[in-house]
């Protein structure tokens, strides 16, 4: 189940925070669908919206699949879209291995839902301009993602 916790728009940009419930496959994808709508409404370039939506969806699915719960924070400034995703879950023992395409620890239930092909993290990285990941086994995983709005000014 997805719950929007807060939303406010300041001069510095827009911040929205959502909670994600682990194991809730039925509602999985609702947060990213909503984020996509927000980004579209802001008039952001459609190619960037699409990339951001893919990143958000993959990140949300990872929380649903591998964690008990998670927080998804969206921040949009005139320069960039930022996603901060922190979950409480099993964590990733070997991040380098998890970043390899095709490496997966998915259960049959995850595969039945069409996920767990080992493409998630590599696809998030591919569609991000800045991708940071940290994880602690038994505690959870944290993603920090930036997508620049002006692709000509990538840093």
């Amino acid at each position: 189940m997805m719950v929007k916790i807060q939303g406010n728009e300041k001069e510095s940009g827009l911040i929205e925070t959502f909670s994600i419930t682990g194991g809730d496959f039925h509602h999985a994808g609702q947060v990213s669908t909503q984020i996509k709508e927000i980004l579209k409404e802001l008039g952001i370039d459609p190619n960037i919206v699409r990339r951001a939506a893919i990143v958000a969806y993959e990140a949300e699915m990872n929380v649903v699949m591998y964690a008990q719960r998670g927080i998804f924070m969206l921040k949009v400034t005139p320069q960039q879209i930022k996603f901060f995703v922190q979950d409480e879950g099993q964590g990733i023992p070997d991040i380098e291995l998890a970043m390899q395409e095709g490496y997966s620890t998915a259960t049959p239930e995850m595969r039945e839902m069409g996920f767990g092909a080992g493409m998630g993290l590599p696809n998030i990285k591919k569609n991000s301009d800045i991708f940071e990941i940290s994880s602690e086994v038994g505690k959870g995983t944290c993603l920090n993602i930036t997508i620049f709005l002006d692709q000509g000014k990538k840093q």
Partner: peptide, 17 residues
């Protein structure tokens, strides 16, 4: 084109446009 008929197929189609 898919044989996966759950709601995720529709969500994925929407995300990918």
């Amino acid at each position: 084109i898919t044989g996966l008929a759950n709601v995720q197929s529709v969500r994925t189609a929407n995300i990918i446009e």
